[in-house]
Amino acid sequence: MQSRDGEAVLSVKNLTKRFGSKLVLDNISLTIEKGKTTVVIGPSGCGKTVLIKHLIVLLRPNSGEVYFKDRRIDNLREDELNGIRTHYGFLFQGGALFDSLSVAENIIFPIRQHYTISSWKEVEELVKAKLAMVGLDGYQNYYPANLSGGQRKRVALARAIAMNPEIILYDEPTTGLDPIRSDVINELILKLQRELKVTTIVVTHDMTSAYKIANRIIMLHNGKIAADGDADHIRNHPHPVVQQFINGQVGDDDLAVLRMSGTISQAQFLPRDFE
């Protein structure tokens, strides 16, 4: 298992989250160490996004606690949280770029909110540098509507790292990117961790990427932590659910459903159906 001697930056204790009657996170406890990369995996809809939104208190738990450097943050007021959130970078699963602002303005946004800008030249340099990191230098004046899905994701990534945060939460940074670009993002994540000692939490479905960047992998399943350990621990995990997930195998239940749904013609529309 993972050594627990590092300094804890983030931790959650007995976190439970419900939406209506649906239990999404069930009594989860977790400690994130400073300077490490933690990857969260798990089937679609299992609550990965919900979990990392709790780490920055974009969502509040029904019960349980969230700590940032030993300070309890889940019960703070929004204006108190704003100061704490400047230590974070958050990449949203859908990018969440401001579509009324250009790419450059999107990246300048967090800087502008927290500093009075004295030299626009420096800011321009910074935008250029951050965009270059994600391979999009030259796109400063584009609007999000004119970018492809993968490009938007990368601009959002550039925005998340614009303030050189201590903690970066990435929600599926490589989804929708081609394999080479995905690997560039992996390298970027590694580089930020190595050079700036950022604490990184990555939600991903991409096992190649997970193995490459992770110091620790956590698998969520049915609202609980099903597996927790380094890459080897996960690869050799005895639990069948974990094995199925990391090898991308369909479970027997899912297969049964597919078999039951009959012949192709029932599941597909044919041109003659519209005549």
Binding site: L58, L81, F90, F92
Partner: peptide
């Protein structure tokens, strides 16, 4: 939420 996440 993105605005909030950036401490604004």
């Amino acid at each position: 939420d993105a605005v909030r996440s950036m401490g604004t």
